[in-house]
Design a protein around this nucleic acid. Structure first.
Lengths: 254, 254
DNA sequence: TTAATGATGGCACTGAGTGCATTGGCGCAC
DNA sequence: GTGCGCCAATGCACTCAGTGCCATCATTAA
C-alpha cells in the first residue's frame, strides 16, 4: 500500500488507462509525438511507437483505443467538466452559460500551449485527425445545444427551441473555434482570453434581444406541423394591416 | 461507338468511377445498402459487398475510395455546384446567398428521400459514418465562411471578418441541419423547404442589422430588423382570423 | 486478324485493431 | 520462506480495410 495506484487526477497524456504505471500513457504519447513529428502520422506505425516507448504493440492498445487516440487524450473528462459547469448555471442567461463553458475548453488548450500547437499542426495536415477533432467539437456542440434547448423548452414550441438551440450552440462554438484557431496559428504565444470574451459578447449581442425577454412570444408561435407551414417574420413596428396583407397573400399563394 | 461511355451527368450512386459500365457503381451501392440494412455496417465486409454486386473485391475500391464512400457519393459535385452558386451571387446579401446555397444542399437530399433516410439511419448508429458526415458538413461550412469573409473584407478588420464569417456560416449550417434532421427523423415524408426558409429568415433576422443595410428581402418574409422581431409559425390550414388574432395579440403585448 | 487500350480480376502485402491464452512480477496469507 | 492469486504486460494469431502490381479479357482501331 505504498504507492496509490488509484485514479490519478487525469492529466493530459493519461486517459482511460488501466490501473498500472500512471506515466506509461505519457511515455507512449511522448514517443508518438516525436515519431509523428519526424516521420509524419501515416509514416508512423503503432509498432514503431510501441518500440520507441519500450512497450509491446498490444500494450499500446491497452492505453489507447486507436492510433489517433494518442493525440486527443482528455476530451472526455473535459466534456464532463463542461457538463457540470452547465448544470450549475441555471440562473445565468443560457448563452452566457455556454460562453463560460467554451472558456473552460479554451483554458484547457491554454494549459499546455506547446502540445496544443503540435496537435493543431498535425490535425491540419492529416485528414484522419482532422475528422477526429471535428467529432470532438461536435460533442461539445451537442452538449451545448441540449443545454440551451432545456433552458428554452416551455418558452417556445419544440421545433423552434431545437432550431434556436442548435444555432446558438453552433454560433458560440464557431466563435470559440475562430479565437482558438487564430491563437494556434500564431503559435500559441499570446493570451486569447480577451478575444474569446469579445467574441462571446458579440454573439450574445446578436442573439441577446430576441432570445430572453420573449416569454410572451410563446403565444403566437404555433407548433410547426408537418405540412403547409407558413412562417412570417416582421418587425413589430410594422403597420398591422400591412402584416396581415402579407400573410394572407402568402397563404393564398399555396 | 454504339454506347457513349463519356462522363454521365453524375447521378447519385455513380461517382469518381472509371470510365466503364456507368451503372456498376449503382449496383455496388445497392448491394452495400442491402447488406448494411441486413447485417449492419460493421457486420458487412467489402468482400461480401463485392460478392453480392457480382464484382471482385479489387473492383470495389476502383469505384469507391473506401467502404464508407459507398454511402456518401455526391458531396463533391454538390460542393462545386454550391461554389458556383455562391460566386454568381455577388449582388445579394451574403447571408441570403448562403441561405440559397443550403437550400441547394437540402434539395439534393430531397432528390431521393428514401436513400437520404437510409443514410441517416446508418450514420446515426455507426460512428465511422457519423464522422464522415461531419467532415462533409464542415466542408460546406468552410466554403460558406470563405465566401462571407470575402464579402466582408474591407468593411471590417480581418480578425473581425473571420469571426463573423465563421459564426454566420456555422449558424446557417446549423439551421439547415436542424431542418434536415427533423425531416430525416420524420422519415422524409413532408416538404421541409418552408421550414428551411423560416429558419433562414430567422437567422437572417438575427444577424441582419449589424451585418448589412438589408436589401429589403423577398416578399412576405420581411428582413427581421433590429428589435421587436416577431416570428409566427402556423399551419396554412388554420383559420385566418385566428391567425390574425394571435398575431395582433402578440404585437399588442410588447 | 492483330495490336492497343482500358476495365477487371487475382494476388500478395502492409497496417490497424481484437480475442485469447500465457507469462511474470508483486503483494499477501500461511 | 514458500506458495498462491491477482493483474498488467505480452505474444500470437486472426480479421479486415486499403494498396500496388501484374495478368487477363473484351472491345475497338488499324
Amino acid at each position: 500500500m505504498v504507492t496509490d495506484m488509484s485514479r490519478v487526477p487525469l492529466v493530459p497524456g493519461e486517459q482511460a488507462a488501466p490501473g498500472a504505471h500512471p506515466d506509461t500513457g505519457r511515455r507512449i504519447a511522448a514517443a508518438a509525438f516525436e515519431l509523428f513529428a519526424a516521420r509524419g502520422y501515416d509514416g508512423t506505425t503503432v509498432d514503431a511507437i510501441a518500440e520507441r516507448a519500450g512497450i509491446a504493440r498490444r500494450t499500446f492498445f491497452r492505453y489507447f483505443r486507436s492510433k489517433d487516440d494518442v493525440i486527443f487524450p482528455d476530451h472526455d473528462s473535459l466534456l464532463t467538466m463542461v457538463n457540470q459547469h452547465l448544470i450549475a448555471q441555471t440562473a445565468l442567461d443560457p448563452i452566457e452559460a455556454i460562453c463560460g463553458a467554451v472558456k473552460l475548453v479554451l483554458l484547457s488548450y491554454l494549459d499546455d500551449p506547446k502540445v496544443s500547437v503540435q496537435r493543431y499542426q498535425l490535425s491540419r495536415s492529416v485528414p484522419a485527425l482532422r475528422d477526429r477533432e471535428l467529432a470532438s467539437v461536435q460533442r461539445y456542440e451537442r452538449t451545448f445545444s441540449r443545454y440551451v434547448r432545456g433552458r428554452l423548452t416551455g418558452t417556445l414550441p419544440d421545433a423552434q427551441a431545437v432550431l434556436r438551440a442548435d444555432v446558438v450552440a453552433a454560433a458560440v462554438v464557431a466563435a470559440h473555434n475562430a479565437v482558438l484557431r487564430e491563437w494556434l496559428r500564431a503559435g500559441g504565444d499570446y493570451d486569447p482570453l480577451a478575444d474569446l470574451d469579445a467574441s462571446c459578447a458579440w454573439v450574445q449581442g446578436v442573439f441577446g434581444e430576441n432570445q430572453n425577454p420573449t416569454k410572451d412570444a410563446s403565444a403566437p408561435l404555433r407548433d410547426a406541423g408537418a405540412d403547409g407551414v407558413v412562417v412570417a417574420v416582421f418587425r413589430s413596428g410594422e403597420p398591422m394591416d400591412e402584416v396581415v396583407a402579407q400573410i394572407s397573400r402568402s397563404l393564398r399563394e399555396r
